[in-house]
Design a protein around this nucleic acid. Structure first.
Lengths: 310, 310
DNA sequence: CCAGAAATGCTCATATAGAGCATATCAAAG
DNA sequence: CTTTGATATGCTCTATATGAGCATTTCTGG
């Protein structure tokens, strides 16, 4: 409360916990859903919960029977237009979780959905002209041109260039949320009211697609400076499997040799001593994650030109 | 709610908004406090608020009469042991705000406090042996050695080395929260129960010091990849002033020439055409922030060895 | 005119990142 | 037993970025 002395007259509200649980299987990044596959696991935060995170874990486990591993908080929001049966405002606290998919039959209708089902334009791993340019750019440009003033038109065009990698700009895979929000503004997603203008991409319940976008964006940004990918890997894996996992998340292909150089420069993995010849071709060495690095090194680095030993 | 069909039976809870408002004045990073200077502006989230952020802004303005500029969400938590008068669980949503200090007399007892008053060990700008080594290391090492098992002792020592830059490790200014939490665990901060073992650093109300630590950590990390410092600068400034501001935030000195190189490599500023000779010495050119870069470039860069033009 | 305080210009060595070329090593097909 | 298809691995070369300093220039205040 904002004053320990006097009691607060705060209105009652309801708090909801929502989880974006991610795994990568068969080269696809997947998100854990319940029901018909269009909603994320979620439930109210109640007094019995030890903490927000504990509450989220228990809802996920209850609704999906799937264990949750690594977890971090994503974002909290309070949509003006969402209230519960008692018309209380709802505050939603979202979490991002990383696990490995466990294939158990019929667990409550919980299912794993490729996240590119909801954001097909985010997958740029296959060669050929990307969907952002083929399918999204035309209606988006039309939206930009439809602005009232010339200044606004210019703003919109520049925003499109940056967010969608148009007009010579490079594609930035981290801008998942910005892209979704731009599409929303241009009335190109189904949640925005109309039918979505024929843009591909499955909609979700309420604002769940926006929350998923937030989770993807966070994860794509995070794999660049923290070794979180390993939460998604089995105990032993080949470097190519690791690369394929990162590619699945980032939605783009990586340069193999440079990827390997990056990995071992950082001492992230060590050989198990075994090899596998699963995939055909020269058998690959198996590696395991060196969990110690989490303790050994805080993170990457500065970007500030600090002066040493004053 | 987690199911749009049936009503949820969620318990009522109270939501609180807390703000960490930062400004840099006279070379000191300062945080806006109310009352006796040991508490952050805060208040309940009520149904009249348009959004969480709007509610936070209105509380800050009501309690301090100070305008809030740039804002971002920090973290949401629910302390088990904090309830309000009606013994509802409290969910606290914290925000980080950046402004420039306005010196207005007697505004409600609101005041700006140097954040190093609460975290003196975080200021390493002055030469000489840093406080982390002089004052903190001994009791921390004692805590590490007091662990039950050898394994736990080793873990603690390594954690100290990384968090506090001991045993040859480098100081990482971003680990503000980890340091505070380690000190808490070692019973060296006043909030942890006892008197804090003589470690310098003013305590705050409730968990406000932890929230401030979260804000400092976020800001220190963010200035490295996003041009947020400019939110703290006046419209025109010299490069040295800019550098001093970053140094105040980071708590360490920067290499002047390299700092300048970094700034203009990124086209972050442009000359106003004027010069100032305020500080003595050769007059410095005045610069202004090129706000356009926010639109022009998304951010910094990859760290993933992507392959171009497949 | 001189000392003090910055502002500025440059240089050099060392990482890191982006792109490719060339081999090595296996499984399975023929 | 050889060929083909698929990787796994080693190395090289070129930009660019980063960390550290040295050397000048340009003012203000005695």
């Amino acid at each position: 409360m904002h004053d320990s002395g006097r009691p607060t007259e705060s209105a009652a509200i309801a708090a909801e916990l929502i989880a974006v649980i991610v795994a990568v299987t068969d080269g696809q990044p997947r998100v854990l859903t319940i029901g018909d596959g269009f909603r994320l696991p979620s439930g109210p935060f109640v007094s019995g919960h030890r903490s927000l995170q504990a509450g989220m874990r228990s809802w996920v486990e209850e609704q999906t029977h799937h264990p949750v591993g690594y977890v971090e908080q994503l974002y909290t929001f309070a949509d003006r237009d969402r209230t519960d049966a008692a018309t209380r405002r709802i505050v939603s606290i979202s979490y991002l979780g990383l696990t490995r998919e466990i294939r158990a039959a019929g667990n409550l209708g919980a299912s794993w959905q490729s996240w590119y089902r909801f954001f097909p334009w985010e997958d740029r791993r296959s060669p050929g002209p990307p969907m952002a340019e083929e399918r999204l750019a035309p209606p988006l440009r039309a939206w930009a041109d439809a602005a009232d003033t010339e200044a606004e038109r210019r703003d919109r065009r520049q925003r499109l260039a940056i967010n969608f990698g148009l007009d010579g700009e490079r594609w930035n895979e981290d801008l998942v949320l910005q892209r979704y929000e731009t599409l929303w503004e241009a009335q190109l997603v189904a949640e925005a009211g109309v039918d979505g203008g024929g843009i591909p991409g499955q909609r979700m319940l309420h604002d769940h697609r926006r929350i998923l976008a937030t989770g993807i964006a966070r994860l794509r940004a995070k794999i660049k400076y923290r070794p979180v990918v390993f939460e998604l890997m089995p105990p032993a894996f080949t470097l190519l499997q690791l690369q394929r996992t990162v590619e699945a998340l980032a939605g783009r292909l990586l340069h193999k040799q440079n990827f390997r150089r990056l990995i071992d420069q950082q001492d992230l993995v060590e050989e198990t001593g075994e090899v596998t010849s699963e995939t055909g071709g020269r058998p690959a060495k198996l590696f395991r994650f060196r969990g110690e690095v989490l303790a050994e090194r805080a993170v990457a680095g500065s970007k500030l030109p600090v002066v040493r030993a004053v």
